[in-house]
Amino acid sequence: MLALKEVGKTYPNGVHALERFSAEIQPGEIIAIIGGSGCGKSTLLRAIAGLDRASTGSVSLDNVVITSPHAKIGIIFQEPRLLPWLSVADNIDFGLADLPADVRREKVAAALARVGLADKADAWPRELSGGQAQRVAIARALVPQPEVLLLDEPFSALDAFTRRDLQDHLLDLWADTRPTLILVTHDVDEAVVLADRVLVMRPRPGRLFQEITINLARPRDRKSELFDTFKRRVLTALDRSLDRAVRDPADKSSAGEAMWW
């Protein structure tokens, strides 16, 4: 279990990015963290990854406090961040440090096949499209079989079609080993289609504002009415978190559903 206890972060320049964020995340859960800019969602993710240390509070995985990058925690960034001097296969291999060569080769080949890029093993990263590169990044993060996978707006740089494909693909991959996924996003659709729980944050300083459970069966139909209902709920929470004028939730079901779009 991943436990976040009153995690706070104040940067050396005085910016108070995150305040007393607490949450308990069960193994295999998919969490989406959503919020306006400056709500500390990336800060939170970097603290969980062990890339930045929290100023107050603690992050612990199975009762082990995380202060630096951990073998069981993987991360996928907004950009693929592939190493341009390594072939696609070697990039995936980068995540497998201590295993014997033949085991690594097998795992890399399996991972490449799993993300549908077996034919690109010897390609250079520069030869890949944005979606392909991000799939390689996903394979690289998943191949060491992390227990927790963090995703920092992983699909925001991609076009809408590729984004939807990769969201489905991610769920598909998740089903293999069911790691905990923590996804930072600013895309309500993405949060609702992927997450078990959506944590809405409010900015300045970043705080947990509201938690919304998405108890929809998977695979989720993006066009269903129920899906829309959850989306609306998240949007309402987002608007509230930003202190925007919100219509009374009671009348949204009756009259102006179109008002939201």
Binding site: P69, E79, F94, A97
Partner: peptide
């Protein structure tokens, strides 16, 4: 950002130099 990839995979100092900085 590339150096951070090395950190995520917990490269030691020498490994960071050999596998990230040199190339």
């Amino acid at each position: 950002k590339i150096v951070e990839v090395g950190r995520v995979f917990r490269l030691s100092g020498p490994a960071m130099i050999r596998r990230i900085l040199l190339p």
